[in-house]
């Protein structure tokens, strides 16, 4: 089973190839990134996100951290996408390279280790989920649902994914639904607002989402709409499992919630909406009381 979203950003000699996620499902096109400014632009324009932004950061550090430090690159990334913890990624690189390990080696180990950890996490989660597992999900977790499907099938569990379209960028429709269907994985697609109705009818019995940020207390920040799913899931006694990485000992409320340009709230709609006031918080916060269990990379 394959998905280009499992590894959406790659190194090619002294350039970075970035899968343009805004063009999926209509075409699989890669943007060639030749310098840090270009890397920051593709990040700002949402050409890549989630795992892609992590890989973009690491490869940018590998290629261009001669005249600028990891932390300075992290600051630049954070300015473009303030919710994600690029400063922590910079700290990981700084700590590892201070042990005299070459940055290329550190990045290579990280990329391989991260994929292995995601597979391991899918295995652990598969053991927890019910049989059949009718899984509600939102946004996109870069192929990890494919890993989860394989692990569930390996232990003889039936699976059906219900994907929220994830307005306004439609990551659920364009990325998750597309990659699941591409691999003939049983799934259905819904408007974000249909989630409660499906929960009430018993058509989903667990929720699995990503998490852009996590704290040691078990709170998360993730794609807008995640909080609603968690609140509703709690109301209907449905378990809610976010996939987390690198939890920090911080107050979740201290995280910057990125607000995108208002016009992006009308994404993919034809028309002139310049005179319509809009709001677009890109992420929301879910407290631990609404979370059944956070699935970290290693436990």
């Amino acid at each position: 089973m394959v998905s280009p979203l499992i590894s959406p950003v790659r190194l090619k000699n002294d350039k970075i190839l970035v899968l343009d996620e805004t063009k999926i499902p209509f075409c699989e096109e890669y943007i060639e990134v030749s310098n840090l400014e270009e890397a920051l632009l593709v990040l700002e324009e949402m050409k890549t996100r989630s795992l892609g932004q992590v890989l973009l950061f690491f490869y940018s550090c590998q290629l261009w951290a001669e005249s600028i430090s990891f932390q300075e690159i992290a600051q630049e990334f954070k300015q473009r996408r303030p919710t994600f913890d690029f400063l922590m990624l910079g700290e990981i690189l700084r700590a590892e390279t201070s042990k005299c390990i070459d940055v290329k080696e550190v990045v290579s180990r990280f990329v391989y280790g991260f994929d292995q950890a995601r597979r391991g996490r899918a295995r652990r989660l598969a053991g927890i989920l019910p049989n059949p597992a009718n899984i509600l999900t939102i946004c996109n977790v870069n192929g990890e649902l494919i890993y989860l499907y394989e692990e569930l099938k390996n232990i003889g569990k039936e699976v059906f994914f219900v994907v929220c379209e994830t307005r306004p960028y439609l990551q659920g429709t364009r990325l998750t639904f597309w990659e699941l269907r591409k691999n003939n994985i049983p799934c259905g697609l819904i408007c974000d607002n249909q989630a409660a109705s499906l929960m009430k009818e018993g058509k989903v019995n667990c929720v699995v989402t990503g998490a852009d940020r996590a704290t040691t207390k078990g709170d998360i920040a993730n794609k807008i709409g995640t909080y609603s799913l968690a609140r509703l899931a709690k109301y209907f006694n449905i378990p809610f499992y976010p996939l987390t990485q690198y939890p920090r000992d911080i107050d979740i409320e201290s995280i910057d919630i990125e607000e995108r340009q208002p016009e992006e709230a009308f994404m993919y709609l034809n028309g002139d909406f310049a005179d319509t006031e809009a709001v677009y918080p890109s992420f929301d916060i879910t407290k631990s009381e609404f979370i059944t269990k956070c699935l970290g990379l290693y436990g």
Binding site: I224, R231, D275, T276, A278, V279
Partner: peptide, 20 residues
């Protein structure tokens, strides 16, 4: 708009955060 009532537009999945 026609009735001059102030409003702000959002997608449905943003409502939870606005309540929060």
């Amino acid at each position: 708009k026609r009735e001059n009532i102030n409003f702000v537009y959002c997608t449905d999945n943003m409502l939870g955060f606005l309540f929060y």
